[in-house]
Amino acid sequence: MAHALDGKNVAILATDGFEQSELQEPKRLLESWGATTTVIAPGDSATIRGWKDKDWGEQVAVDQPLASARADAYDALVLPGGVINPDALRIDAQAVAFIQAFGASGKPVAAICHGPWLLVESGLAKGRAVTSWPSLKTDLGNAGAQWRDAEVVVDGNLITSRKPDDIPAFADAVGKALVG
């Protein structure tokens, strides 16, 4: 898929506690296919820190603060998981509004692992087929989603995956949505 995403801009919304691989690997793959990625985070910190295995991981540079980010500047949104990251973002009104703006635009919204918690909070899960880390199955069902145990589930503009092992299929689905 080399250069297939030239000219495409992908927002990655995250904060401290994102699952290291679920931000860095989709970012790397999308960039290798020509996309420009922008890490967006609340606050004014220059970096956010990942979670790897059972401890804090690496820091990642924040390219743009959430306060100045606009959904119309991007072609897709990626929501990494980790337990801490989406739990913090789902109580941030600006983050929820940013996700809702993507949902309203019809642009691809991709969430992996615990990232679909943000689809619940933003109202995007209702009536949609999704997957996630298994512990979110009940939350997603209670939000009106139809949960499936699959590597990747694509329902219109919504793309979801279960876990780090699914990242290749997840990134591929995002790439296909951007060229489709």
Results as ranks from 00 to 15, higher is better:
Ala61Trp: 00
Gln24Asp: 13
Gln94Trp: 05
Pro86Leu: 00
Thr37Cys: 08
His3Val: 04
Trp51Gly: 03
Thr36Trp: 00
Pro86His: 01
Glu22Pro: 11
Phe18Val: 14
Val78Ile: 13
Trp51Cys: 03
Leu89Gly: 02
Asp44Lys: 07
Leu79Asp: 07
Ser32His: 07
Ser45Met: 01
Ser68Cys: 01
Trp56Gly: 04
Ile84Lys: 06
Leu79Lys: 06
Ala71Asn: 06
Gln20Asn: 15
Asp92Met: 01
Asp44Glu: 07
Glu22Ile: 13
Ala14Arg: 12
Ile84Arg: 08
Glu19Asp: 15
Ser21Asp: 10
Ala46Asp: 15
Pro26Phe: 07
Thr36Leu: 05
Ala71Val: 05
Ile84Leu: 09
Pro42Asn: 11
Thr15Lys: 04
Thr36Ile: 02
Leu66Arg: 02
Gln94Val: 09
Ala14Glu: 12
Val60Tyr: 08
Asp75Lys: 09
Asp63Gly: 15
Val83Cys: 01
Leu77Asp: 04
Arg28Asn: 12
Gly17Met: 02
Leu89Pro: 00
Pro26His: 11
Ala71Glu: 06
Asp87Lys: 00
Leu13Phe: 10
Asp53Thr: 13
Asp44Cys: 00
Phe18Met: 12
Glu19Arg: 11
Glu58Phe: 07
Gly57Ala: 10
Pro42Ser: 12
Asp6Ser: 08
Leu79Trp: 11
Trp33Asp: 10
Lys54Cys: 00
Gly82His: 11
Ala35Cys: 09
Lys8Leu: 14
Val39Met: 06
Leu30Lys: 07
Ala61Gln: 10
Arg90Asn: 02
Arg90Thr: 00
Thr15Glu: 12
Leu89Phe: 00
Asn9Val: 14
Ser32Asp: 14
Pro86Asn: 02
Ala35Asn: 03
Ala4Ile: 15
Trp56Lys: 08
Trp56Phe: 08
Arg49Gln: 12
Asp53Trp: 09
Leu79Arg: 10
Gln94Asn: 13
Gly81Thr: 04
Ala35His: 05
Thr38Glu: 03
Asp6Arg: 13
Ala73Cys: 06
Asp53Tyr: 10
Gly7Lys: 12
Asp6Asn: 11
Gly7Cys: 13
Val10Lys: 04
Ala41Ser: 15
Ala69Pro: 11
Gln59Asp: 14
Gln59Glu: 15
Pro42Asp: 10
Ala4Gly: 00
Leu23Phe: 11
Trp56Tyr: 05
Gly81Cys: 04
Leu13Val: 15
Pro65Glu: 02
Trp33Cys: 14
Glu22Tyr: 13
Asp63Phe: 05
Ile40Pro: 05
Thr15Pro: 06
Phe18Ala: 09
Leu66Ser: 08
Ala88Ile: 03
Leu13Asp: 11
Asp6Trp: 05
Thr47Leu: 00
Lys27Pro: 03
Glu22Asp: 13
Glu25Pro: 00
Ala14Gly: 14
Thr38Val: 15
Ser21Val: 14
Gly50Glu: 06
Val78His: 05
Leu5Thr: 03
Asn85Ile: 01
Trp56Gln: 10
Lys8Ala: 12
Gly82Met: 07
Gly50Arg: 03
Trp56Arg: 03
Asp63Leu: 04
Lys54Asp: 14
Ala11Cys: 12
Gly43Phe: 13
Asp55Asn: 06
Val60Pro: 02
Val62Pro: 02
